[in-house]
């Protein structure tokens, strides 16, 4: 198993689902001995799109990018704390750009064996206007992908980890 999964990446986006994914990834890294990387993407592509669409003002663009940088630090530090409690070390990583593209690039660059992501939208729209960047990354990355579900069960697994 340790040879099968040497490097795990968990994608964090500030949602509860992604924190649950992080807890699961920590358990997985603990049991396999795999290296764990936590990635947060600062979605500057979406902010630029909002400026072009004139939904954002120039000062909002700057403000939201700063907010997202602060969120990245906060959530990655939180995941780091969760991991340290269980004796697992985490490589914190953040990048800027399009979520889908940045995840795929990070998986390739870091030679990730397994990408761990939170639960995807339970409601599906057949409209192209609604798309999930994480789902797009899931379909595009060259490695295997694990979608973490059941927040309560994962919490129990995480808590029981010595």
């Amino acid at each position: 198993m340790s040879n099968l999964i040497r490097k795990i990446m968990v994608y964090i986006d500030g949602t509860e689902h992604s924190v649950t994914a992080a807890q699961y990834a920590i358990c997985l890294a603990s049991s396999t001995g795999a290296e764990l990387v936590a990635l947060y993407v600062i979605n500057t592509k979406a902010v630029e799109d909002l400026l072009k669409a004139r939904i954002f003002l120039q000062d909002e663009q700057v403000e939201y990018e700063h907010d997202m940088e602060a969120d990245a630090r906060r959530y990655l530090n939180y995941v780091n704390e969760l991991a340290l409690k269980k004796g697992v070390s985490v490589i914190k990583k953040s990048s800027k750009g399009s979520v889908n593209r940045e995840i795929v690039n990070a998986v390739k660059e870091d030679e990730i064996d397994l990408l761990v992501i939170g639960e995807l939208s339970r409601i599906r729209s057949r409209r192209d206007e609604f798309y999930d960047e994480t789902e797009r990354a899931m379909r595009t990355v060259p490695c295997s992908v694990l979608i973490v579900k059941d927040e309560e069960k994962v919490w129990d697994i995480y808590e029981s980890l010595v």
Partner: peptide, 13 residues
């Protein structure tokens, strides 16, 4: 929750 906020606004756009 700036990340999800921006993503949702982008979807509206």
């Amino acid at each position: 929750m700036s990340g999800p906020h921006v993503a949702a606004l982008a979807e509206i756009a």
